[in-house]
Design a protein around this nucleic acid. Structure first.
Lengths: 305, 305
DNA sequence: GTAATAGTGTCTTTCAGACAGTATGAC
DNA sequence: GTCATACTGTCTGAAAGACACTATTAC
């Protein structure tokens, strides 16, 4: 390979997630149209510490868990980059608790961008209007092509395939290809129907958010990271509601409890909630687990209500 | 964040994996001391296509499956970078079949770098000399500290914890911290015993390789990518040997078959092997699966012999 | 008492893990 | 026949999944 002497511009993009009262939220610019990003500083020792420093300065809140997501450097992204150069964006997923945002940022319900990913309210299973429109557009796009139809069926859980909550990115990608999200029209793609509900974002930020959600939904199943999103002490139902918020699906109470209690991740605080109804035991996360977060296994049930 | 006007140098690092006759192999420079890497070219449309083009030019072999691994940009890495700038390395995992290497590269058994990760020969379970030395060094390092001892136990499967073959990176990291790999001494770390067997690599290449192995061992369990490593048609035992090579563990034959056959990933070719012993049915990978590689679930048994 | 929320007991089905067996080729 | 390799049948125990039940508070 020859000399690579072009000007390169490197940026960090953060997907910061919190869960507040059963709503998964993501930190965005004030109008909710973009994820926060900033250039990589020469003073930063490493990418991760750079991101941590920057986020904590912006939100005045410590960042519990940080994980690298993906690095993008497509030429297509370079429109906003230095004229003769290339822009590299390194995206991160971070877990926190929500705090009053400082400056030109705000917290948004992430299902605002992906309404079809929230299936917690759908017990009766009569397909919603949105679902109907989505299926129709996708059917028009596949046009009978077997491969396309199979991709749609696997991603959206049709034709006898079960819904898999981790396929957030695959679903967004299909909707984009079928021209059913606003970004597709913006990028000059042919539409195969009315755009599906859901707020668009700048550039490929919505795709990055989809990547983050996919990753987080997969991660909580085998690594104890949910706790970064919860308060110091919490009831088992708080924990369940938090997981359900992330997964976009309801779960069986007794199974959830059985699985959580069998793993020795929690310890009782001895305190209880108050208010109407029977008081709930409060738990905390065992301290040792935090240290071995990357090693310790977790399991979660996959049960729908 | 202020203006980030430093000179940035971006490189691609490839971890190319093939499995040949039960040996997982990785592409390295001729002497096996480093992974192949090259600068990101202005002509490359995207990172992935840049890597693909470069690898296929080097190896004269198409690259089946490519996945981004991790992006590094620590200041510590910048020693070899432009004097006043920063170096960003984007690493990729790629799966191929082995071909005669062209130029200054070669294929190496990956267990050459991680002898402790190959547990296929250990039925009788008397700890090897290497294992004994490793435990001794790690015990000296933990020095009775409970947190350290628990990290070691979880990573290496001691004190009643089961061995988890995915924790390749965690194990390497612990050995590094304990000063038991050559890179630790090179970087000026205190040693807590004789270095463990295993060939060192340049800079943090061995850590990158550990990341790749971890990722691949996890991936084959839930996504059908093993097939990128196999010939066009193969027997079930070929498939099993390939998975065992990657996982570093033996598996039960009948369970393996039951699981593979229950998934509708394979189809019979109608042909058979010849040679001594009963001929084996030859299978091929169903073509539809390749298209939905990223969506289709796989399962593998986790069984030790 | 009722309403509301917390928490438990247990049945069924599925499947991972384990082992022992039979089948078909070369010689 | 022996040896070598391919393939199959079936038992067991631990879970996931599903449902119905009891317990403790506020009012």
């Amino acid at each position: 390979m020859a000399e690579g002497a072009q000007t390169i511009h490197a940026e960090l993009i953060a997907v910061l997630v919190a869960v507040t009262q059963g709503v998964p939220r993501v930190l965005t610019l004030a109008d909710g149209s973009a994820l926060p990003e900033g250039p990589l500083e020469p003073t930063h020792r490493s990418l991760q510490s750079g991101l941590r420093a920057w986020v904590e300065q912006q939100t005045h809140h410590p960042l519990g868990y940080v994980e690298q997501l993906y690095t993008f450097a497509d030429q297509a992204r370079s429109a906003k980059a230095p004229p003769e150069g290339r822009s590299i964006s390194i995206s991160y997923l971070g877990l926190t608790r929500e705090a009053a945002p400082q400056g030109a940022i705000s917290w948004q319900d992430w299902y605002r961008y992906f309404p079809w990913e929230d299936r917690r309210g759908e017990n009766k299973r009569e397909p919603t209007l949105m679902e109907a429109r989505m299926r129709e557009g996708l059917a028009r796009w596949d046009g009978g092509d077997v491969t396309r139809r199979m991709r749609v069926a696997s991603a959206f859980g049709l034709d006898g395939v079960a819904w898999n909550e981790e396929l957030v990115l695959a679903r967004y990608q299909l909707l984009y290809e079928a021209g059913l999200v606003h970004e597709a029209a913006r990028d000059g793609r042919a539409a195969h129907g009315e755009p599906v509900p859901g707020t668009p974002m700048v550039a490929d930020h919505r795709r990055i958010l989809a990547t983050a959600i996919s990753r987080l939904r997969a991660k909580i199943k085998y690594r104890p990271v949910v706790f970064e999103l919860l308060a110091e002490s919490f009831s088992l139902l708080d924990l369940q509601r938090c997981v359900e918020a992330l997964a976009g699906q309801r779960m069986h109470k007794s199974n959830f409890r059985r699985v959580m209690e069998g793993q020795n991740l929690l310890e009782e605080t001895g305190k209880f909630t108050s208010g109407p109804g029977r008081p709930a035991k409060l738990f905390r996360f065992r301290e040792a687990i935090r240290a071995e977060r990357d090693i310790t296994d977790t399991r979660l049930p996959t049960v729908r209500t």
